[in-house]
Design a binder for these strands. Structure first.
Length: 272
DNA sequence: ATGGCCATCGCGGATGGA
């Protein structure tokens, strides 16, 4: 099973690139962030014509997420249950897996399939801003909800644009970024909190090229100079850890004309 | 050249992104 996450920075602009990418990378599931579309404008027909089932959750101008999958997702959830939030940031669903269905039969009570949670974490803007306070509140709610989801879905993947650079090696200039948004101890503490819940950063299970980023600023020739951050992540639950075959960042779409500022992150899991 | 953005809304320029 291959899954991917991609912040497309407007699906209206990037839909052709998404369809091209899926043709070249026929993953089983893809979560998108920053679709920036109201639900009535979502390109359902184009995505279904490409062979994908799709769930979406958007709003005007900002945010917006989607879950594309070869097989239809079940138990779809939009945003964090119990959190009052007018921003469309989360879409979750369960993807079927033949292998885990067998496992579930042998392990009654565990849900079959793979729980996929696609999330667009708040940016936070600046550590002294109201938006940062919102980011912390959102992260608290996410952590509590993920705990609950884990109790019901042993096979869980939390992937998306975290807007957190977990370590200094995830930042092209950690001195300049020290204490700045994406790099504050509070944000990194929340990332560690997710790891302490039993999730694993799939990217770091493998040797990776040094200076691996998932986002490059549009300004300052940042991509050409490879000045970026690794802020898009794929975390997997402990039962999936031993099944992760690979995880990489696909820089190729960042070289497109009119690219998103983010690149897709892809994971391969040994599941049918 | 040593600095250079992009999308939205809406039609100029503010806002947000990261």
């Amino acid at each position: 099973m291959k899954l991917a996450t991609w912040n497309v920075n407007s699906l209206a602009v990037r839909l052709p690139q998404v369809l091209d990418w899926l043709q070249a990378n026929p993953v089983d599931g893809l979560v998108l962030q920053e679709t920036k579309l109201t639900d009535d404008k979502f390109p359902q027909a184009e995505i279904e014509a490409a062979g994908y089932a799709v769930q979406w959750f958007g709003q005007k101008t900002y945010n917006g997420v989607a879950l594309l999958s070869r097989q239809a997702a079940s138990e779809v959830v939009k945003n964090i249950p119990g959190l009052v939030d007018d921003q469309a940031r989360v879409i979750a669903g369960t993807l079927p897996s033949a292998l885990t269905a067998e496992g579930a039969a042998a392990d009654a009570g565990n849900g079959a399939g793979v729980r996929v949670i696609g999330a667009y974490f708040p940016n936070g803007q600046a550590p002294d801003s109201d938006k940062f306070v919102y980011k912390m509140r959102w992260l608290d709610a996410l952590q509590a909800w993920v705990q609950d989801e884990l109790s019901r879905h042993p096979n869980l993947v939390l992937l998306g644009d975290y807007n957190i650079a977990p370590e200094d090696r995830d930042v092209y200039d950690p001195v300049a970024w020290a204490g700045q948004i994406h790099c504050t101890p509070q944000e990194r503490g929340h990332f560690q909190g997710l790891l302490q819940q039993g999730l694993v950063d799939a990217f770091r299970l493998f040797d990776q090229p040094p200076r691996s980023w998932s986002w490059w600023d549009y300004r300052n020739l940042a991509f050409r100079k490879n000045q970026g951050l690794r802020i898009d992540h794929i975390l997997v639950s402990e039962p999936l850890r031993a099944r992760v075959l690979g995880c990489h960042i696909d820089k190729l779409p960042r070289k497109n004309e009119r690219p998103s500022d983010h690149a897709p992150v892809v994971i391969e899991i040994a599941l049918a």
